[in-house]
Design a protein around this nucleic acid. Structure first.
Lengths: 123, 123
DNA sequence: CTTGACCTTCACACTGATGTGAGGCTTCGA
DNA sequence: TCGAAGCCTCACATCAGTGTGAAGGTCAAG
């Protein structure tokens, strides 16, 4: 599929799809006319990239782990050699994500408690 | 306390403490010499701000919810003086925080599953 | 053949959070 | 009193993400 369709199906502006390619996160083929040509799996891949970016990974780190990911996070055929340091990096990031979740949940609870007070006491 | 001490005690560069003030997240007093003067409670408050920023909230959103997060030594608006529309805004913020938590949890699970697969399959 | 939609690259600019440095004032200790 | 350390403001830089526009190639439908 071409970039316009991928953009529509993922909700990601074509501009960003080109940007991700520049960051080596996507590797579309090129037709004879120079147009980018994405495989069907690119839809899932773009969504995954977005999710990872949104949870705070840098494009660099995503680039490091992407070879071992396919659309839904399943294993690529033969990833015998995931560098140990990459795995450690990943674990560190998982820990940081958890810390963020804890922080947000804590503050969500505070706001919720406050709101409850407003609603019962308000009248 | 002055900005240098607050910086040392929080590990946050003075530059950022000034930035947070510009974003109306901190409100230090000024001495006759123009130096910023922070209360003891600023330490906890800065840590709170950092946690929220690191969790992906913008300074704007933090500014909106900070007054309602007690436990940071700030004055909390009395619940009975809070108009209904503010309550609605607050609920919106809570919803956004929840959405962010969901997003982070999803990605944490993906990464965890992936890492587990790599570790068992690796050898 | 023309029009319009879609694609290409290039490039400039803004935002938010942060880094860095210049130029100058204040405070403090030897 | 002098120098160092700390503070001030101002301003430019970076990085990821995004918007916009120019100038042009490709292609299908009318």
């Amino acid at each position: 599929m071409r970039i316009g369709e991928l953009s529509r199906r993922t909700g990601v502006p074509a501009r960003l799809l080109r940007y991700y390619e520049e960051q080596r996160l996507l590797h579309p083929e090129r037709g004879g006319n120079g147009y980018r040509s994405y495989p069907e799996s690119a839809v899932a891949q773009v969504q995954q990239i977005r999710g990872l970016l949104d949870s705070g990974l840098t494009t660099g780190m995503i680039h490091a782990i992407l070879p071992y990911l396919c659309g839904t996070g399943r294993l690529v055929p033969a990833p015998e050699s995931v560098p140990v340091e990459t795995a450690a990096l990943l674990q560190g990031h998982i820990d940081r994500i958890q810390a963020r979740i804890d922080c947000l949940a804590r503050n969500r609870d505070r706001l919720t408690a406050y709101l409850a007070a407003v609603r019962t006491e308000g009248r």
